[in-house]
Design a protein around this nucleic acid. Structure first.
Lengths: 201, 201
DNA sequence: GACGGGGCTGCACGCCGGTATAGGATGCTC
DNA sequence: GAGCATCCTATACCGGCGTGCAGCCCCGTC
């Protein structure tokens, strides 16, 4: 991670925001207290309120910052091969916050943006396909966006299940290789898919 | 849903448990209050405490009940074709609770059980594969379990993204068809996978 | 019919945490 | 150097919520 060095990133306001992202990511919005955030940032309780007004507004500021960061990372990764498709390690401390944001109700715009991105990607990938997918692209993109985010959202469980700390380089490598394997292999063979489709009627 | 008719399911204790599952599923553990749960169940605040002792214990009782329900649904679905693979609509009111349980830190046993199930399924599916997957089965199973749960966990976003209410029969059908489509098509073609693998080194 | 226990209620306590406000320090402008 | 905005602290308020407790009702039992 190592957040980009905006000039503002040394200010108390930025320190508070970063501390909030860490605390909310770790404990969730409800359990994260303004007091703890203030202490982590090394400022007083009142200053948080002075800069952000309310806990909600603080969260929204975090959301905005997350949004900017994700867009930046996305732009950086645009040129590279799709090995970095799943943004789990690149996000660093933002990973946990993103997971909370997605599961605790906010962050809809971010998911929608990912869906749109996925839709464009799908449109390009469908160019060279013989059989026509009879499912709306939006629907496919939404499901695939959810799947792409699943490791991010269920991070602790995936770590435990894989028996590896995914924040370490080895863990990251293992995850990447696993993702490539999973993504390059269809889960349902043609006959199984046909059977399932038939079962649906 | 339509909870199995245990004899106990008419008792106040069961009503409280069901109300708790609904409230926690809807609002999360922190925001769900014992008072609201009691009111929903049509009982007094003290009775909740009388039956369950504490809010934590109430949650654990809900977890246990969820576990039983999931196991039952899983056993029922064992015989059928894998069209019902993703347990999103079958869970009914438990869906939201399961999502909370997975993302708010508990429910590790449930995820692990799904991983083990997936591992067995993978072992069977790998029987008839030519190329050897060079990734630990556990890792693959964990990632695939996460992906299978992604729609459950990110349900509201997927609903919004697909532009359909997935709790309706039409929405369910659309989701199923989409899942079949996604699962039956590899995301990465052989050359893209090779490129990604090469990029990893 | 007394008696005991489980299901159930109502109330009060105490803490925690978001909100509000008064005020001090610092630095810039005219 | 007076005025003022900005940054920052300390402290008080107060509502919400988990917890603890005293007691009532009802029903089975001897």
């Amino acid at each position: 991670m190592t957040t980009v060095q905006d000039p503002e990133d040394l200010t108390a306001r930025a320190r508070i925001r970063d501390a909030a992202i860490r605390h909310i990511g770790e404990h969730g919005f409800e359990r994260a207290t303004i007091r703890d955030i203030a202490e982590s940032a090394g400022v007083s309780l009142g200053l948080v309120r002075h800069h952000f007004g309310s806990k909600q507004a603080l969260r929204e500021a975090c959301d905005e910052h997350l949004m900017k960061t994700v867009r930046r990372l996305n732009a950086e990764a645009a040129g590279r091969p799709p090995a970095g498709f799943n943004p789990v390690t690149a996000l660093g401390p933002y990973r946990a916050y993103l997971a909370r944001a997605l599961t605790e109700g906010w962050a809809a715009p971010l998911f929608d943006e990912m869906t749109r991105l996925g839709e464009r990607w799908l449109a390009a990938a469908d160019q060279d396909r013989a059989d026509p997918p009879d499912v709306p692209p939006r629907a496919r993109a939404a499901v695939m966006a959810a799947m792409a985010l699943s490791v991010t959202v269920l991070y602790p469980h995936v770590c435990r299940g894989m028996g590896a700390d995914l924040s370490t380089p080895e863990g990251e490598r293992l995850l990447m290789r696993t993702l490539i394997e999973v993504y390059s292999q269809p889960v349902l063979g043609p006959e199984a898919a046909a059977e399932a489709r038939a079962w649906l009627g």
